[in-house]
């Protein structure tokens, strides 16, 4: 008999470390002591669950969820779609995926953003959805623009969409960013380059997916998200193999 057990140890070699000085804000916001390693208890294995009562059906459509009737945001219309999987390549169903982004000109609808590119009156910039039973999700939106930021004098973020995912246990919680294939800003971005592993950066780069485009309507990008995997069992205090 097997039961789901603890999550696999996080593979820190694919993640940024806390202290990454080229991304300047990390210097004062990174712990200096080592983390204490904690084997999973009920506090770590469990996590919040969300249902269709928590969100609305149109929350995943950024082309319409803030637009006035019969209007739509300006920009390249895209579909962002993919699956939420775990490290065992199993789908993660019914999990909450939330996104946020700048508009086509790189301006965020946030009271702290003062970039001179204008707000789009028909674009809010956030969306959310639940993955289906196969882990699949999609959003409709406009492709965000590049965005300047005060790090070094002339730093520009590549076009990106922020992505937040839950999984089934609180220790699977993940926030990341989705980049777009072929963007020349990716290799020179200090935030992207906090990631030590080139393959891990590629894994955050959505690929043009012509098969999923809607002809004469929207172009599509594919973005799969991988969360931590889980052992099969913890049986009589003894770990069974997976």
């Amino acid at each position: 008999m097997t039961q789901p057990g603890e999550f696999y140890q996080r593979n820190r070699s694919v993640h940024p470390t806390a202290l990454t000085p080229d991304y300047k804000t990390s210097v004062a916001r990174s712990p200096r002591y080592s983390m204490i390693s904690l084997q999973n208890s009920v506090s770590e294995i469990t996590g919040p669950r969300f249902g269709h009562g928590d969100i609305d059906a149109g929350d995943n459509d950024l082309l319409t969820n803030y637009a006035k009737a019969d209007e739509s945001p300006i920009g390249e219309r895209i579909i962002l779609h993919g699956r939420v999987l775990d490290e065992n390549a199993r789908p993660v169903p019914n999990t909450l995926v939330e996104i946020w982004q700048a508009n086509a000109g790189g301006r965020y609808r946030h009271k702290k953003d003062t970039y001179l590119a204008p707000i789009d009156p028909n674009f809010g910039g956030c969306g959310r959805t639940l993955s289906d039973e196969n882990g699949y999700f999609y959003f409709r939106t406009v492709k965000p623009g590049a965005y300047p930021w005060r790090n070094m004098v002339n730093n520009w973020r590549p076009a990106h969409i922020h992505v937040s995912v839950f999984g089934s246990g609180f220790v699977q919680r993940l926030i990341t960013q989705c980049y777009f294939e072929g963007d020349p800003l990716i290799p020179i971005c200090p935030i992207v380059q906090t990631i030590p592993d080139a393959d891990a950066i590629d894994q955050l780069t959505a690929k043009l997916d012509l098969n999923a485009t809607v002809p004469l309507d929207s172009i599509a990008y594919k973005f799969d998200i991988v969360l931590r995997g889980r052992r099969s069992t913890l049986f009589e205090n003894r770990l069974e193999g997976n």
Binding site: N11, Y23, S26, E87, A89, H162, A200, Q203
Partner: peptide, 10 residues
């Protein structure tokens, strides 16, 4: 095994 998607700042 797949590798977990890398984290990025919020």
């Amino acid at each position: 095994y797949l590798k977990e998607s890398a984290s990025q700042t919020a």
